[in-house]
Design a binder for these strands. Structure first.
Lengths: 337, 337
DNA sequence: TGTGGGAATGTTATCGATAACAATGCCCGC
DNA sequence: GCGGGCATTGTTATCGATAACATTCCCACA
């Protein structure tokens, strides 16, 4: 059976060659029950002979839903979001879905809405939103109710399906570790304060100090970069009273380490430092960094599970999954000198 | 005009409300010439009133081509690939394309083929392959000739459209810098040798030493991680003759720095170190790392330009774009003590 | 005045798949 | 023997868009 011109073989071509209806071909491809084994083999042979390739667009048109999952994330080379995206894509592929990535330069409502619109044009099967600020929740308030949405690191108070790491507990563990090492109080270099992650870590830091009856020092607010960590570190290194620092991520901690080094403040002899994230390089900082591990893989897989659950079960009940964080003790913490 | 049940409004609904044919609605949406302004406004008003959303699947079915670009990349949290993906997605979105990500756990032919198959099922408009080994070229040998493909960091000898950083020149600059600082020779910690990137850097290192009439030391082969850099560094730190090290990326260099520190080999006083990539944290290493910058953004944008060129012009002539690398001098290099 | 070409719009067909409904034959139970 | 139910398969319709071709009107030029 020669197809005309350059047109790829369709199901009707397979059907003709196998001597069945195109519907039967569809049944074979979709593992419908009630197809004779003999028929199935005949169809499979025709598929192989014609090198038939299904057209996902045709299926999406009929079903109203593509086999794509749309991801909304901030344009960022941060280790966390990049890791999560990679892990998510892998898990989605294993479940038979392709992942379409839409990133925004800034986490403002208009930017997010534009990306969401593009995904909806594709009739995505669902959306995963990796955005840690309130504007993301707002931007997604008006999408069709039949599109499943899962937030990663979103707003715990938004009443939407959410997977998040226990930021408060992670911060508490870091601060407690420093207090138990003998430090009087702990200074905190935070990420951007409007991010839910940052807010959770700030909260955990404050609570732990207050519960221990320790002074809560002023907050040093930063972004997530080593540059900002360095800037904050340059201030902290000038204060002899500063003996313990909890940085909101490992890259901030790296900048802090550098600033301390420049002013001859030895780590951990003079100042102890704890990070957050456990990036792969953290154990090769000088000194190897004590940090709080977020399992980005667990987060990504939990998000996919929630999303697939929503696809199957259209009740739309919001669920929250909290992934624990773990303290990873290395060599950047010692008792005060 | 009320639509029945939950069906979204289609072009035919817009047409009915605006009192034109559905073809005219399509013309308005696709900015066809030969539509009266008055007609256009009427259609636009109907689109807004009905909150019409185009269905990309329908368009893909008719045209045989979706508005998706498929990316094939290794499952990796490496800064380079993650950066390129992010930059590429941004550039593609600006050009009206969505990006579907397909990652592989290993860069073997079967894994890559499976991902490519998934993309072809989606009738992607084109493919971008971020894979630096020969198996990627093989896996893509048999795809339909009408699907544009651009390799990033692929095989220069494969005769396919390619964007790559000038690895040889980058390595030459690094090694030359160390020689000009007065070092007798330069040791090299490479990435995986079967990667084209690594091979280029090894070649640049070797050539520069040979042309300068210097001894070429044995190669220390690694992967791309700080852990492997540390392992190699533990060996190099034991050799008093080692005064200059060129590491194949910044994370390898970080591991080397750590190993040197542990054995009291001061950087740059006793040993000079140069990395490759210029990750954002490199300037906050202790000491701030001299490195070779790859502009991942330029690479990504060049790849998109090549791909869009192929979409427009079906001649399929392979092109290669070489993006220059730049030496970034910081504080990790000094003359031998 | 007549003809041709272009602007503007419409009608019909098509893309390739699944949904929905139809048809047939066989087997089992009453 | 007849009727009902189930296995198996087929026919018809549909999804929403663009492609392809058709139609009409108006203007300009010969």
């Amino acid at each position: 059976m020669e197809t005309k011109g350059s047109r790829s073989p369709a199901m009707t071509d397979v059907a003709r060659l196998a001597g069945v209806s195109h519907q039967t071909v569809s049944r074979v491809l979709n593992d419908h029950p009630n197809v004779k084994e003999q028929t199935r083999l005949r169809v499979r042979a025709a598929i192989a002979e014609l090198n038939y390739r299904p057209n996902r667009a045709a299926r999406a048109l009929v079903t109203g839903r593509s086999q794509l999952i749309g991801v909304v994330a901030r344009n960022s080379m941060l280790y966390g979001p990049a890791s999560m995206l990679t892990e998510f894509e892998q898990a989605a592929a294993d479940a038979g879905f392709a992942v379409s990535v839409g990133s925004v330069r800034e986490l403002d409502r208009d930017s997010i809405s534009a990306v969401v619109e593009r995904h909806l044009d594709q009739r995505v099967a669902g959306l995963v939103v990796i955005a840690q600020v309130a504007s993301a929740t707002e931007a997604l308030a008006e999408i069709p109710a039949d599109v499943p949405v899962v937030f990663i690191d979103g707003d715990p108070a938004a009443g939407r399906s959410l997977v998040t790491v226990d930021q408060v507990a992670g911060a508490r563990a870091a601060v407690r570790h420093l207090l138990e090492a003998g430090h009087e109080t702990v200074w905190h270099v935070s990420g951007p304060t409007e991010w839910f992650d940052s807010a959770g870590r700030i909260q955990g830091w404050r609570q732990t100090l207050q519960e221990a009856g320790r002074e809560v020092p002023p907050l040093l607010s930063a972004d997530w970069s080593a540059a900002e960590g360095y800037r904050a570190g340059q201030m902290l290194a000038r204060m002899p009273e500063v003996t313990a620092i909890f940085a909101a991520n490992d890259h901030l901690a790296l900048g802090v380490l550098r600033a301390l080094h420049e002013r001859g403040r030895r780590v951990p002899h003079d100042v102890s430092v704890v990070g957050f994230d456990d990036v792969p390089e953290a154990s090769y900082f000088i000194p190897p960094l004590t940090t709080v591990r977020q399992s980005f893989g667990d987060v990504a897989r939990a998000a996919l599970t929630l999303l697939l659950g929503q696809l199957k079960d259209e009740t739309g009940a919001a669920e929250t999954v909290i992934v624990p964080a773990q303290l990873v003790v290395r060599e950047s913490v010692a008792p005060p000198a």
